[in-house]
Design a protein around this nucleic acid. Structure first.
Lengths: 236, 236
DNA sequence: CCGTAACCTGAATCGGGTCTCAGGTTGGGA
DNA sequence: TCCCAACCTGAGACCCGATTCAGGTTACGG
């Protein structure tokens, strides 16, 4: 279970890694415009339908200029996924901040995740597509999120709020639930359905949280009952 | 929650749908060789690195012949995913057959799923890639599996073996767990690691099943005890 | 207002893909 | 044996995309 080393990957995806020096405001702005255009184009078309030409056109920049800032289509894609990872985790962390118990934090974290997915559905599809474009960068994405979970679960276990399940396995299970529920009830809804999926169906969210809370609850009866009561109260 | 109509999709992916009549043994054999070659090539290279030329070369068949049997690369890909869906569900159903309780069936079903994924890792990646190649056909894949789950969960709820959680939400959560645990502990292991992932790590499997079993367990104490007893009796 | 480093450009090159088509081959029924 | 419907073929027409490169533009320090 040796964790892969992602530093090389991040260096490669860092736009500043291109050998040419880059100093002026103008250069920085161009770079930023390329990344923003890439975000829009990848989100709209997917990796393979996207092209450098489309990205540079959208950025309002000459084709050749692209190669002053990124080595290839793959490189800019990786940079984008790393950026999105940061943003998803930020959305989750922001929501989780201030939660009193682990279960509350769990609930808040999922809410943050779904909020991001609902706000940027196409963007989250980009992250999922990384599995086929650059498996390494997807592993980085998942690993980073799981790390946060594992730490939180360990702490909660210390406080007796969560059963003694293997936190790593539990963390991957939780991610899996979030991914597929998000895919099914947020991403799929956009096509064909009437209502705009600005967020997840509350019923689905409640049922999912119940599933998760039950799964994580400490096994003992006393602790069990405490958790059940808490669930009722916390209907913020 | 109107279910999409997949019949058109299946017709399109059915190799026999090409307008030309197809009768003889020879034609059937060619068609089968193309599908088998496509399976190998898509599994090895992914959708976009794959090409018609590579598929026909592998099949030992002329390039032009391909178009007598399939309309496009997309069409043969869809046919392949539908076929894989059938095989995954078969692997799961076979294992689940004869399980006395829902929890046993759950366990057996997951074992079947992981067995398939471990036996054909690349093939299962093909299914996941369908999300970007043909979202429709992936929806068909997931929907079919979820249908089975929902039915099983409903029956188990009738017997008091499973809590009264919304079975559809639970089914998607279960799929999500299986997908990501499978991806993490079977597919990722192949690269870089020493041990061959002929199957999933037993510790991980046990922890995951504990997570799932806890999540699905009936909530009330009485129901809980009843279910426990029932488990002993109902060894039909 | 000049020089130069940084920046920008898009036509051209190159590689590789899909799909067509005009014609060749096969095999089973009469 | 012969015929013809079914089957097979791969060179070529066509398209599209990544990447390069020779040369143009910008802006800032002096």
């Amino acid at each position: 279970m040796t964790e892969p080393d992602f530093t090389e990957l991040e260096r490669r995806a860092d736009p500043r890694s291109s050998d040419a020096p880059r100093r002026t405001k103008r250069g920085e702005a161009t770079q930023r415009r390329l990344l923003e255009a890439a975000e829009a184009v990848f989100a709209e078309l997917g990796y393979h339908e996207a092209s450098i030409v489309k990205i540079t056109e959208r950025a309002g920049i000459g084709l050749g200029t692209f190669y002053l800032y990124f080595d290839s289509k793959q490189t800019i894609f990786e940079a984008l996924v790393i950026d999105l990872n940061r943003r998803v985790r930020h959305s989750m962390a922001e929501k989780m901040h201030g939660a009193a118990t682990r279960l509350e934090a769990e609930r808040a974290g999922f809410a943050g995740f779904f909020e991001f997915t609902a706000a940027h559905p196409a963007l989250y599809r980009v992250v999922r597509e990384a599995e086929f474009v650059s498996p390494e960068v997807l592993q980085l994405h998942y690993t980073r999120i799981v790390e946060g979970y594992v730490e939180g679960l360990r702490r909660a276990q210390g406080l007796g709020e969560v059963s003694d399940i293997d936190p790593e396995v539990a963390a991957w299970a939780l991610m899996g639930i979030g991914e597929l529920i998000g895919a099914r009830y947020i991403l799929w809804e956009r096509d064909g359905q009437d209502r705009a999926p600005t967020s997840i169906d509350p019923h689905v969210f409640e049922q999912m949280m119940r599933f998760i809370e039950t799964a994580l609850a400490p096994s003992g009866d006393a602790a069990d009952r405490a958790a059940t009561e808490r669930t009722k109260e916390d209907q913020e």
